[in-house]
Design a protein around this nucleic acid. Structure first.
Lengths: 218, 218
DNA sequence: TGTACATCAGTGAACGCGCGTTCACTGATGTAC
DNA sequence: TGTACATCAGTGAACGCGCGTTCACTGATGTAC
C-alpha cells in the first residue's frame, strides 16, 4: 500500500510483513471489542506466536496504538487528497469523506473518537491534521455558496493559525471549517448508532448537508 | 438532586447516600482516566471500603456504568427541557446544550462518545433520547429560518418514526435534526481537542452555527 | 565454495499487578412484642 | 421500656484470570573472508 514498505532485503521484507499482520490483527481486535480492549498477548496468540515476540516489532502496547492512530490519520489524509486530485471542489471531498468513514468506523473513531484523558498524540499526527486542513482549504477556494456569516468570517480572518500561509479568503476559511464540523456531526452520530431506529436514511441527511455547503440554496 | 432520592427511613437515606458517593467517585475516575479504566476496587479503596462492599449497591461493574450512562442522558434531557421551559425557540436550547457539554465533557462522551462494540444501552435510555428529540421538535416549531431543503424535507416527511406523533411539519423536522447534528459536530470536535492550537474561538464558531439555525442569514 | 562469526526472530519461564466476583462471616442497626 | 429476633452493611480471604513486560536462552538466517 504505502511506497517503500516492502523493504529490500528478505529480512526487511519479512519484518514489515509481520508488522503489517500485527497491525491487521490489532484492527480486527479493536473492531471486535474497542481500542481499550486491545491486548498484545491476544494478538500474539492469534498469530500463533508467544506474547514477548511482539516486542521485536513494537516497543509496547502504547507504541502499537499510537501507530494505529497515525495510520488512521494518514489514511484519512490520503483519501481526502485523492478526492481533491485535479481541482475539485468540496462536493467530491464530502463524498470521499463519508466513504472513508463507513469503510471502517473504528478507524474513524481512532481519529475522532472519545479522547483518552492523559494521552497525547505524537507531533506528526498534528502535521497530518494540518495537511488535511490545507486540502480542505484548497477545495473551499474553488467552491461557491450563498451563505455568509460576517461575524464568523471576521473572527477567522484574525485567527487563522490553522490555515498557516494558505491563500484562502475568510469565506473559504468559513466554508472549510463548516464543511468539517457539519459533516463530522452527521457522520459521528451515524457511526455511533444514534440514528438507528429513527427511520430516515443518514445518507439523505448527509447529502443535504453537503448540498448546502457546496451549491447553496438561496 | 433528583426528587425522592433521599429516601424515607434512615437506612434508605444512608443507602442512597452511599450509592451517590460511589457514582461520584466513578465520575471522578472516568474524568481522570476514561470510562474503560473504571475499576470497582479502585472506587472502594478511595472510599475506604473493601471491594466486595460495592456489590451491596450495584450488581457489578457493567451495572454501574449503565447507571452512569442513564444519568448522563437524564441530565441532558433535564438541561434541554429546562431551557425550553416557556415557549422558547432553538436559540436558548443551543446555548444550554453547549453549557451542559462544557460543564462535564466526560458526561457528554458517555452519551455521544465512541460506542463500545457489543455493548447495548438499556431501553429506557432510548426513551430518554426520544424525549430529548420531542423537546427539540417543540422548539423547532417555534423557530424560523430561511433555509430550506426540499429533498431532505420530503424524505423526513415520509420517514418520521423518530418524531412519533409529534405535530411538527417537515421544515421543523429538518430544523431539529440539523440543530442536533451541526451543534454536535462543533461540540464533539471541540471537546475532543481537535480545535486546540488552531487559533480561533470555538464559541464563535458555535454561535455562528446557532445563528444560522435560528435566524437565517438570507 | 566452504567455514567462522554476527545478527536477530522467537521461546518459555517468570514477575507483579489489578481486575471482577463469590462466599462465609461479623457486627451494628432496626423491628416486633 | 426491655428483650428476642430479623435485616443488612461491610469484611477478609480466596478464586481464576489476563494483562504488560523483562530476561536469559535457542536456533535459524545472513554476512565476511
Amino acid at each position: 500500500m504505502v511506497a517503500g514498505k516492502e523493504g529490500r532485503t528478505p529480512r526487511e521484507r519479512y519484518r514489515s510483513q509481520v508488522r503489517a499482520e500485527i497491525k491487521e490483527r490489532a484492527r480486527e481486535q479493536i473492531a471486535a471489542s474497542g481500542a481499550p480492549g486491545l491486548s498484545l498477548n491476544a494478538i500474539a496468540k492469534q498469530m500463533g506466536m508467544s506474547g514477548p515476540a511482539l516486542y521485536r516489532y513494537f516497543a509496547g502496547r502504547d507504541d502499537l496504538i499510537t501507530e494505529l492512530i497515525r495510520d488512521a490519520y494518514r489514511s484519512l489524509a490520503d483519501a481526502v487528497r485523492a478526492a481533491a486530485a485535479p481541482g475539485a471542489d468540496l462536493a467530491g471531498l464530502g463524498r470521499a469523506l463519508r466513504a472513508w468513514a463507513l469503510d471502517d468506523p473504528q478507524r474513524y473513531f481512532l481519529v475522532y473518537g472519545t479522547p483518552v484523558p492523559g494521552y497525547h498524540a505524537p507531533d506528526d499526527v498534528t502535521t497530518i491534521a494540518r495537511e488535511i486542513m490545507a486540502t480542505l482549504l484548497d477545495a473551499a477556494r474553488l467552491t461557491e455558496d450563498h451563505a455568509d456569516s460576517p461575524g464568523l468570517e471576521a473572527h477567522l480572518a484574525q485567527h487563522r493559525q490553522w490555515a498557516g500561509d494558505h491563500p484562502a479568503d475568510p469565506a473559504a476559511l468559513r466554508r472549510a471549517l463548516s464543511f468539517w464540523t457539519r459533516l463530522h456531526g452527521v457522520l459521528s452520530l451515524e457511526l455511533a448508532g444514534h440514528f438507528t431506529g429513527m427511520g430516515f436514511d443518514p445518507a439523505v441527511l448527509y447529502g443535504a448537508e453537503l448540498d448546502r455547503l457546496t451549491h447553496a440554496v438561496p
